[in-house]
Deep mutational scan, measured.
Amino acid sequence: QTVVIGDTTYHLNNPEAAQQIAKELAKKYGLKVVISGNTIKLK
């Protein structure tokens, strides 16, 4: 699972954790979560 935040890319072996982290950050910073395949992007 790949999480992309701005110009930073994180690789996590746990998809659920990756999605949870993405949701928390999106909520905290008012970002939009875009999931395509096994890549999660925060914009």
Rank of each mutant, 00 (worst) to 15 (best):
G6D: 05
I40N: 00
V3G: 02
K32S: 13
T8K: 13
K32V: 15
I40K: 00
K43P: 06
K32I: 15
Y10M: 09
K32P: 04
G30Y: 05
Q1A: 14
Q19H: 11
I21G: 00
V34Q: 06
Q1L: 15
T39A: 04
E16F: 09
E24T: 09
K27V: 08
V3T: 03
K23Q: 13
I21L: 15
A18S: 02
T8R: 14
T39G: 04
H11Y: 14
V33W: 06
T2P: 05
T9Q: 07
Q1W: 15
Y10V: 08
L25D: 01
D7K: 14
N38L: 06
A26F: 11
A26H: 05
L25G: 00
K27F: 08
L31Q: 04
K43S: 14
N13K: 11
L42R: 00
T9F: 06
L42C: 07
A26C: 10
K41C: 15
P15Y: 11
D7F: 14
E16P: 01
Y10Q: 02
V33P: 00
V34P: 00
A22F: 09
T39C: 13
Y10E: 02
V34R: 00
I5L: 07
Q1F: 15
Q1Y: 15
I40C: 01
T39P: 00
Q20H: 10
V4K: 09
T2S: 09
E24N: 09
Q19V: 13
A18V: 11
E16S: 07
N38Y: 04
K43M: 15
T9D: 02
K43W: 13
Q20R: 13
N13E: 12
A17N: 08
L25R: 00
K23T: 11
T8Q: 09
L12I: 12
K27D: 13
K23M: 12
I21R: 02
L12C: 00
A26D: 03
K43V: 15
E24Y: 15
E24V: 11
L25E: 00
V4M: 10
E24S: 10
G37Y: 02
I40P: 01
V3Y: 06
K23F: 13
G6C: 11
E16D: 09
K27Q: 12
Y29F: 09
K28W: 09
L42K: 01
Y10W: 09
Q19A: 09
Q19L: 15
A22K: 02
T9S: 08
L25I: 07
V34H: 07
E16A: 11
T9L: 07
I21H: 02
N13G: 10
K32G: 06
G6H: 07
K41H: 15
K41G: 03
G37V: 04
L31D: 06
Y29H: 08
K23H: 12
S36V: 13
A26P: 00
T9M: 08
K32W: 08
L31E: 04
V3P: 02
D7H: 13
V4L: 07
D7S: 13
K32N: 12
T8E: 06
L42D: 01
